[in-house]
Design a binder for these strands. Sequence first.
DNA 1: TTTTAATGGAAAATGATTATCAATAAATAG
DNA 2: CTATTTATTGATAATCATTTTCCATTAAAA
Lengths: 146, 146
Amino acid sequence: MPDPEIRMRKMVEALRENQYRITPQRLAILKVLAESKGHPSVESIYEQVKTNFPTTSLATIYKNVAVLKDLHQLLELGFSDDSNRYDGNKPYDHPHVVCTVCRKILDPDISALADMTQELTRETGFAITRHRLDFFGICPDCQARQ
Amino acid sequence: MPDPEIRMRKMVEALRENQYRITPQRLAILKVLAESKGHPSVESIYEQVKTNFPTTSLATIYKNVAVLKDLHQLLELGFSDDSNRYDGNKPYDHPHVVCTVCRKILDPDISALADMTQELTRETGFAITRHRLDFFGICPDCQARQ
DNA sequence: TTTTAATGGAAAATGATTATCAATAAATAG
DNA sequence: CTATTTATTGATAATCATTTTCCATTAAAA
Ligand SMILES: [Mn+2]
Ligand SMILES: [Mn+2]
Ligand SMILES: [Zn+2]
Ligand SMILES: [Zn+2]
């Protein structure tokens, strides 16, 4: 079974468990989130869903994103100078790499992260519970185009 | 010479070099930025400046913050769910630790950072130019109060 | 003294998100 | 399968807190 499909089932299951109704629009939104690799914005989810359900409202996307966030099935990446972006595949804190040219966002594998959090706790005495780690740069595609 | 004083001179110098006028309000803002440890918001700078210059306008703080940002003398930390915070002492990218209770922000020393950026470049092919690394948790003071 | 940047006070813009509500349709029991 | 209940949708208006703009007044620089 492909990965996005597994992920989608998981999200549907979470909705069912919490007595949310399974609507076609909802499924379309889950599909976009499960299949997307670039961390879409609400606007981008909206555009994609509209290709199958042209009458879909932007408000519906917002409402569903809020539901999935509540169910901890969605990671929200807020940007103070841009619209929020969402990760429906890894709904927990992890680092990101953001291309400053095409605005695509990727999930890198970073092994040094656990060490970093430990070093931090030791040094500051903070009880660290969350993190938000964004690296900005130019992706290989955009580098090639220049 | 104390550290904040050195920092303040540096900022005044940058203003002079770029033909900005040195006003009492401006100096007061620099002082707050140079002496502050907790990464103040515009509102917080405003409150502090008002103790010496009661007629100061909030607009003046905004305008001066913009100037200092332009001169690369100020690091802006934008939060999508809160007002911006500023670091006038280290006007370049560096990690932060944010207390989720009292909202104070500290600068930890993290040695593992350079390694992390390298690992990232190797793995993703991105040309990394900037970063924004925030760790969230509860500071020692707030832990003690609980 | 002259020039013009900076200030202060207020109003205006900003724009993504949230609220509203009538219409629709998912769930479920009979 | 049908009826009932009520969550969800779609369209639009309202919100909200910063941040920006405006402009007459003030004062820094030379
Ligand atoms: Mn991600
Ligand atoms: Mn800092
Ligand atoms: Zn790119
Ligand atoms: Zn605290």
